[in-house]
């Protein structure tokens, strides 16, 4: 069952998600070992495969480093649910085939450690611990197309060979 790691903060930035001191590698497994290190040192010890991160506005602001998405995905996080995302992080997630969820209410309705289940098709986050459903707008079609193809490069390759 997926657990929520909740950070009641806006503007969680790329330097906190993956500090520049680790940018000398693009190895996902190694980046994952430092995921959120400057925000929550303990995160890498707590996180389990399929867990979700929940945060406030402007998640992923700052640099264009896709390493931020790789670190999170490398830590086997299923998705990030935020009130809003910074532009480049949003692009990078989609381009990597990593589904992220924009929800204005999730932060208020999910507590740290709550168990959640996500129905991407229906646009529903089910908070099992609190027994409430939180709806969200699924990503736009063009983004889903890229995600379903497995990422932007797969999408392009498919388009050019179709």
């Amino acid at each position: 069952m997926a657990k929520a790691h909740v950070y009641k903060r806006d503007h969680i930035n790329t330097d906190e998600i993956i500090p520049a001191r680790y940018l000398n590698t693009d190895d996902q497994a190694e980046l994952a070992r430092h995921c959120l290190e400057d925000l929550d040192k303990d995160f890498v010890n707590k996180v389990k495969e399929g867990d979700v991160i929940v945060a406030g506005e402007d998640f992923g602001c700052g640099s264009s480093r896709e390493h931020a998405v790789w670190a999170i995905r490398g830590a086997k996080v299923q998705t990030v649910i935020a009130k809003s995302f910074a532009r480049i992080f949003y692009r990078n997630a989609i381009n990597n085939g990593f589904y992220i969820i924009e929800s204005p209410d999730a932060l208020e309705k999910i507590n740290d450690g709550d168990e959640v289940e996500i129905d991407y098709k229906a646009g529903l986050i089910k908070n099992k611990t609190a027994s409430i459903d939180i709806s969200f707008n699924p990503l736009p079609d063009f983004a889903l197309e890229i995600i379903n193809d497995g990422g932007l490069l797969e999408h392009i390759t498919k388009r050019t060979t179709d």
Partner: peptide, 10 residues
């Protein structure tokens, strides 16, 4: 504008 690495690859 700034983009990510996958964007850059594309």
């Amino acid at each position: 504008t700034g983009i990510g690495s996958t964007d850059a690859a594309a």
